[in-house]
């Protein structure tokens, strides 16, 4: 595993410029921030002040970049072109090698979002951030959970390429629902009631909204936030299980092609 991580890190460094540009395409939180900070300039919008909005959307930008990966594209490409056979020949489970590649991309991702973190900590947005060890620990857990859940979802979507020809079109639909339901374009607090209830039952908010809400102190103490993180981890492990099942069923089909 350390060797695989090293290889992954080397790959990330080799394609650093490309990856940095990819990360820079995450402009949506900033676009939303522009709108909402203009709104809250006059008066707070419901329970959100301008500072809250700044902290929320910078947080969303950071969480999104730290937890994102491209395993769905990678997997579906390898299935379509048949290069997955190479991976299947190796003595480690392909999930482990994907995991190593995408974990290794984390340092670069962290580096690129550093400016956003600095702005968050140095400006007045700092005032709304949590500062106690208990909630900070939960935040770290929650970031890890969001990463795992996103990884599981993307693995599952990627594995759909075993069964469907145009599975990548599904990613676009997935993104649409994700943006709407995760708190990416608008905090769950501001959604209309019925929509908020729906969002709370779906996994998407645990991929983005939950850690951001935790970060900006929407939960008064660690005890109030614990159930959130527990549900998140349940989703993450469940989703990895689903991805594993889809994988097993898919590989059987893949071998049946004679690849």
């Amino acid at each position: 595993m350390p060797t695989m991580l090293r290889v992954g890190l080397a790959e990330t460094i080799a394609y650093r410029a490309e990856m940095v540009v990819w990360i820079l395409t995450t402009t949506m939180p900033l676009v939303m921030l522009a709108l909402w900070s203009s709104v809250a300039d006059e008066a707070p919008f419901r329970q959100y002040t301008q500072t809250d909005f700044v902290a929320y959307y910078l947080g969303a930008l950071i969480v999104r970049n730290l937890t994102s990966n491209w395993v769905a594209w990678q997997l579906s490409e390898e299935i379509r072109l048949g290069t997955l056979s190479m991976r299947l020949l190796r003595p480690v489970h392909p999930f482990a090698s994907f995991l190593a590649t995408h974990l290794a991309a984390l340092p670069l991702r962290a580096l690129v979002v550093t400016p956003a973190i600095v702005i968050l900590v140095l400006t007045e947005a700092r005032a709304v951030l949590i500062d106690d060890a208990g909630r900070a620990g939960l935040l770290a857990l929650s970031l890890a959970g969001a990463w795992l859940l996103t990884f599981g979802v993307f693995l599952a979507i990627g594995a759909l390429a075993f069964f469907l020809e145009k599975s990548l079109a599904l990613i676009e639909v997935y993104f649409g629902v994700f943006m709407l339901m995760s708190g990416y374009i608008i905090p769950l607090d501001l959604m209309p009631g019925w929509m908020r209830t729906t969002a709370e039952w779906l996994p998407f908010r645990y991929m983005l909204g939950a850690p951001v809400e935790l970060l900006i102190g929407r939960y008064p103490d660690a005890a109030a936030a614990a159930p959130l993180v527990a549900t998140q981890w349940a989703w993450a492990l469940g989703m990895l299980g689903v991805a594993g099942l889809a994988w097993r069923a898919g590989v059987r089909r893949f071998e049946a092609y004679g690849a």
């Binding site: 709108l35 909402w36 709104v39 919008f45 649409g176 374009i185 209309p192």
Partner: peptide
């Protein structure tokens, strides 16, 4: 719809 949603809330 996605683009419209924040405007509707706002």
């Amino acid at each position: 719809g996605l683009a419209l949603f924040p405007l509707l809330v706002l």
